[in-house]
C-alpha cells in the first residue's frame, strides 16, 4: 500500500467509529483519541480495523505509535503494509 492508501484506509475506519467527526479539519499531527473523542473500545476497534485491512499485528505495546494519523501511516508503512 502507498502512504496515501494507508491514510485513506485509516480515515475510512475512523469515519465508521466517529461518524459525526469533521475529518477535513483533522490534522496529521492531531491526537486522534483526544480530537475524535475515542474511548478504549473505539481505539481497539480502530486497531482491529487496521489489522484486518493491512495484516499488521499491531501489539498493544505499539499503540502509542498510533496516536496521530501521521504516526499510523509511518507505523504501518514500516510494518510492511
Amino acid at each position: 500500500m502507498t502512504k496515501d492508501e494507508i491514510r485513506k484506509t485509516a480515515l475510512d475506519i475512523l469515519a465508521g467509529i466517529a461518524p459525526e467527526a469533521d475529518f477535513a479539519a483533522l490534522g496529521d499531527e492531531d491526537e486522534l483519541r483526544e480530537v475524535l473523542d475515542l474511548d478504549s473500545m473505539d481505539f481497539l476497534n480502530f486497531v482491529t480495523g487496521l489489522h484486518e485491512a493491512t495484516g499488521a499485528e499491531i501489539p498493544e505495546a505499539d499503540y502509542r505509535d498510533l496516536s496521530t494519523l501521521q504516526g499510523v501511516v509511518d507505523y504501518l508503512k514500516a510494518a510492511g503494509a
Binding site: 478504549s40 473500545m41 481497539l44 486497531v47 482491529t48 489489522h51 499485528e57 499491531i58 501489539p59 498493544e60 505495546a61
Partner: peptide, 16 residues
C-alpha cells in the same frame, strides 16, 4: 497485558 500479548486485536480484552 500478558493476556493480550500475542493475541490478534479481535481477541484482546480491555481493562473494563
Amino acid at each position: 497485558a500478558a493476556y493480550n500479548e500475542g493475541r490478534p486485536p479481535t481477541e484482546r480484552m480491555l481493562a473494563a
